[in-house]
Simulated assay, not measured.
Amino acid sequence: MCRWFVYRGAPLRTSELLLHPVHSIVAQSLNSPLGAEPVNGDGFGFGWYPVDGDGPPGLFHSIEPAWHDRNLRSLAEAVVSPLFFCHVRAAAGPPIQQTNCHPFRNDGWLFMHNGGIADFDRVKRDLVLAVDPDLYPLMLGTTDSEVLFHLALTLGLRDDPVGAIARAIAFVERVGHEHDVRFPFQGSIATTDGDSVWAFRYSSQGRSRSLFHSTDISDLRTMYPDESRLSLFSDDARVIVSEPINDLPGAFLEVPEASVAILDAAGYRHAAFAPAGS
Rank of each mutant, 00 (worst) to 15 (best):
M1F: 13
C2K: 02
G9Y: 12
A10K: 06
R13Q: 09
S15D: 11
S15P: 01
P21Y: 05
V22R: 05
V22P: 00
N31F: 00
E37G: 10
G47E: 09
W48T: 05
D54I: 04
G55C: 13
I63H: 11
I63G: 08
E64H: 07
N71D: 15
V79P: 06
S81N: 00
F84G: 02
H87P: 15
P95L: 14
Q98E: 15
Q98R: 14
H102D: 01
D107I: 09
G108W: 00
M112N: 05
N114M: 11
G115R: 00
G116N: 11
A118F: 10
D119Q: 11
R125S: 14
T142M: 15
E146D: 11
L155I: 00
P161E: 03
V162E: 10
G163W: 10
A170H: 12
V175Q: 06
G176S: 04
E178L: 06
E178M: 13
R182A: 14
R182C: 10
F183M: 03
F185L: 01
F185M: 00
S188H: 08
D193M: 06
D193V: 05
D195K: 00
S196I: 09
W198F: 01
Y202A: 01
S210E: 01
S218K: 11
M223P: 10
M223R: 14
R229H: 12
R229V: 15
L230D: 04
S234C: 09
D236W: 09
V241P: 11
S242M: 12
E243M: 02
I245E: 06
L253E: 02
V255G: 15
P256N: 07
S259R: 10
V260A: 14
A261T: 14
A261W: 13
I262D: 03
Y268Q: 11
R269G: 01
A276D: 13
S278C: 07
